Deep mutational scan, measured.
Amino acid sequence: HMTFVALYDYVASGETDLSFKKGERLQIVNNTEGDWALAHSLTTGRTGYIPSNYVAPSD
């Protein structure tokens, strides 16, 4: 899985969403939902949907 870094803070709007903080590292599990991606946080160990425009690929 590619690793991504959060560009902004995001507060989950539902139970299936994943909250994260700017700078948090995430792995995209499934990116077939258009503007949303299923992601796993390497920081918190949690998995949920995130807005895909809130993250960018990290080196």
Rank of each mutant, 00 (worst) to 15 (best):
T43Y: 05
V29M: 13
F20N: 00
L18F: 09
M2P: 13
Y10P: 00
W36N: 03
T44K: 02
H1D: 12
D35S: 09
R25W: 13
T16L: 13
H1A: 12
D35A: 11
V11I: 12
A37F: 15
G14C: 15
V29R: 08
S41H: 07
E33T: 13
L18G: 03
G45L: 05
R46M: 11
R46P: 00
N31D: 11
V55I: 13
E33Y: 13
A39P: 00
T47P: 00
D9Q: 02
K21C: 11
V55C: 06
T3A: 07
I50W: 00
T3C: 15
G23A: 02
V29F: 12
S41P: 00
S13M: 13
T47G: 05
Y8W: 12
I50C: 01
I28E: 00
E33R: 10
M2Y: 12
G14W: 07
T32K: 09
H1K: 13
P57Y: 11
T16V: 08
Y49E: 03
G34I: 05
A39C: 02
A56L: 09
I50T: 00
T32W: 15
L18S: 03
A6P: 03
R46H: 08
L42H: 06
P51W: 03
A37V: 15
A12L: 03
T3W: 14
H40D: 01
Y10M: 02
P57L: 13
L7G: 04
I50G: 00
H1L: 12
N30A: 14
F20G: 01
E15M: 09
A39Q: 00
G48F: 04
V5S: 03
S19P: 05
A6E: 02
F4E: 02
G23W: 03
L7F: 04
I50E: 00
T43R: 08
L26I: 10
H1Y: 13
F4A: 06
A12H: 04
E33N: 14
T16W: 15
S58K: 08
G45H: 09
N30F: 14
E33L: 13
L26A: 00
T32S: 12
M2R: 12
T47D: 06
A6T: 08
S13K: 13
G34F: 06
G48M: 02
H1W: 13
V5Q: 04
V11C: 11
H40K: 14
L7Q: 07
V5L: 08
P51V: 01
T47S: 11
S19D: 06
K22W: 02
E33G: 14
T32M: 13
N31P: 13
D35C: 12
Q27T: 11
V29Y: 11
D17R: 10
M2H: 13
V5G: 01
N30H: 13
T3R: 06
H1F: 13
E15A: 11
W36G: 03
T43A: 10
D9W: 02
Y8F: 12
Y8C: 14
T16M: 14
L42M: 08
W36K: 07
S52V: 15
A6W: 01
G48L: 02
W36R: 08
G14M: 09
V29I: 15
D35F: 11
T32E: 10
V5A: 03
T16R: 13
S13A: 12
M2I: 13
A37R: 09
V5F: 07
G23S: 02
G48T: 01
N53V: 09
S13H: 11
G34K: 08
P51Q: 03
V55Y: 09
T3Y: 14
D35T: 10
N53F: 10
A12E: 04
A39F: 04
A37Q: 11
T47W: 14
